[in-house]
Design a protein around this nucleic acid. Structure first.
Length: 502
RNA sequence: GCUCCCGUCAUCUAGAGGCCUAGGAUACCGGAUUUUCAUUCCGGCGACACGGGUUCGAAUCCCGUCGGGAGUACCA
């Protein structure tokens, strides 16, 4: 069932949609280590068979981030190799997949399906209503091939589906799992192999390419486990020796759901831009799935390669814990050779200069002023001085009440439909708020209400906002400043300013 | 709904029937060092999901329950 004596060749096959993903790095790391440990090859293949979602820029970002991490692939789109092209859209043009679809058709292992999107939609709706499994009902499976050919010839739109067995069980032992995976064939969908645009789906393309590229082991995320029967079956019907398939756990959010950008930074470019060191990120990712046999927590990529064992990989999806990443990052950073550390510092400053210099330059006298003046814009926290937070003639309580009110108002603003956190919008909002708050009720206002309304003077409110958001009395124009600091941080700082007045 | 996978401290994990009174790391809490902070060092808190088996003996094997996750696309 598995190919044991083949040279080790593994791959990662990301889809170039959106930003390069930390999950790709995770799976890439495991594949890289496995390949290198066994003296094999690590291949990068781009799976861009979804013409509507894939972009060349995204593919480029994948190459860049893999290289940044040092997960250097031996073969790939931009480095070449004997099994190219390594981009599936280019292989589509070579008619590679069509050929195999035709073979399956000729063998009676695939068939034409003429269902429209609407047909499938109503079918699903019915199944849902009846609490039935949601899958293609195989309505065209029994169609006479001659009739199908005629409809195709007449120009009717079609897809090609796989004709999987209807009875018996599929059994496969994943080396990382205790029990073999058993699935009844009747529960397995007649998956589309060739779409109506003539392009292959993942299932066909991946199986064909893994074979053509001599892939010995497919180490991939758990989300693929459900389609494993289809992939093994395709290999067999196509006459291939299947690679060994191994499924590893999915990276998780703190709530255990599959990692997502709403709940975690998933963009590799972000880590790079934040100053995370490849060694630290890789080290962290490694501890998530593969423990070091000597109990080490900090180790390099080369060390990992040396001790890597596929059977040590964990199948339970690990929670992505930023705190631990940060700890490792600190360890690696502090050990940097001086020159490298300086380079990192320069990089961090340069990144600020571009965005902040326009704001600060008017107030600068020396180059060094930049450092001090830029500080409130990126500091984790600022220290407030009580005096700065109490306008002349006010008392602590009055200040605190207003800070509270300002936070509330801003929170509400952010939650608004079309809220934009930029200088003009903020200014408009704040001026509106002041106008509004400075009106005491027209009739029957209590003296307290009148006094409170009187406090809403632009000059005073703006100063309080400035001091609250920056911890200082001087800053670039207030609304530019607030915009540059960002909503979350502004709110957080106003909160701590308020605390200071207790 | 249906199918499949998984289940050791809050989190990442060690653990392959007796070395387990369950070890390490992060986080958290304390202490020492440091003018402060950070680093470093020391200490503390803290888990085998539950119930049945199998066995002289179970975190480790089996079954059930519960819990979590994934898949269910002409996306990958």
């Amino acid at each position: 069932m598995t190919a044991i004596d083949r040279p080790v060749r593994v791959r990662i096959a990301p889809s170039p949609t959106g930003d390069p993903h930390v999950g790709t790095a995770y799976i890439g790391l495991i594949n890289y280590c496995f390949a290198k440990h066994h003296g094999g090859k690590f291949v990068l293949r781009i799976e861009d068979t979804d013409q509507s979602r894939c972009t060349p820029q995204s593919a480029q970002a994948i190459y860049d981030s893999m290289k940044w991490l040092g997960l250097n692939y031996d073969e790939g789109p931009d480095v070449g190799g004997d099994c190219g092209p390594y981009v599936q859209s280019e292989r589509v043009k070579l008619n590679i997949y069509r050929r195999y679809a035709d073979q399956l058709l000729a063998q009676g292992d695939a068939y034409h399906c003429f269902c429209s999107a609407r047909d499938l939609e109503s079918m699903k709706a019915r199944q849902r209503a009846n609490n039935e499994p949601i899958m293609y009902d195989r309505r065209h499976r029994g169609m006479d091939p001659a009739e199908a050919a005629a409809r195709v010839a007449a120009g009717e739109a079609y897809v090609i589906r796989m004709k999987t067995p209807l009875d018996g069980d599929f059994v496969y032992k994943d080396r990382l799992r205790k029990q073999p995976t058993v699935k009844a064939w009747k529960d397995i969908d007649d998956q589309v192999l060739l779409k109506s645009d003539g392009w292959p789906t993942y299932h066909l393309a991946a199986v064909v390419d893994d074979h053509l590229m001599g892939i010995s082991h497919v180490i991939r995320a758990e989300e693929w486990l459900n389609s494993l029967p289809k992939h093994i079956w395709l290999n067999e019907r196509l006459g291939f020796t299947p690679p060994e398939y191994v499924h590893v756990g999915l990276l998780r959010n703190a709530d255990k759901s599959k990692i997502s950008k709403r709940k975690n930074p998933t963009n590799l470019l972000w880590y790079r831009q934040q100053g995370y060191l490849p060694a630290a990120l890789l080290n962290f990712l490694a501890t998530l799935g593969h423990s070091h046999p000597d109990g080490l927590e900090k180790f390099s990529l080369d060390d990992l390669v040396r001790v890597f064992e596929l059977d040590r990989i964990n199948v339970t999806g690990p929670v992505f814990d930023m705190a631990k990443l940060k700890h490792l990052q600190g360890q690696w950073f502090r050990e940097l050779p001086k020159a490298d550390m300086i380079a990192e510092i320069h990089r961090a400053i340069d990144a600020r200069v571009d965005t902040l210099l326009p704001l600060l330059q008017e107030r600068m006298v020396f180059g060094g002023d930049f450092l001090a003046q830029a500080e409130p814009f990126y500091a984790e926290t600022v220290t407030h001085h009580v005096d700065d937070l109490i306008p002349k003639g006010w008392d602590k309580d009055q200040s605190r009440v207003m800070l509270d009110d300002l936070q509330r108002a801003l929170k509400q603003y952010i939650a608004g439909e079309n809220a934009v956190w930029d200088a003009p919008s903020l200014e408009a909002f704040m001026r509106g708020l002041i106008t509004d708050r400075s009106q005491a009720p027209a009739t029957g206002a209590t003296p307290e209400q009148e006094a409170a309304a009187k406090q809403w003077q632009p000059k005073t409110v703006f100063m309080l906002l400035r001091a609250g958001a920056t911890g200082r009395r001087e800053s670039p124009p207030l609304f530019d400043t607030l915009a540059a600091i960002g909503s979350a941080r502004v709110l957080e700082r106003l909160g701590s300013a308020q605390q200071k007045l207790r």
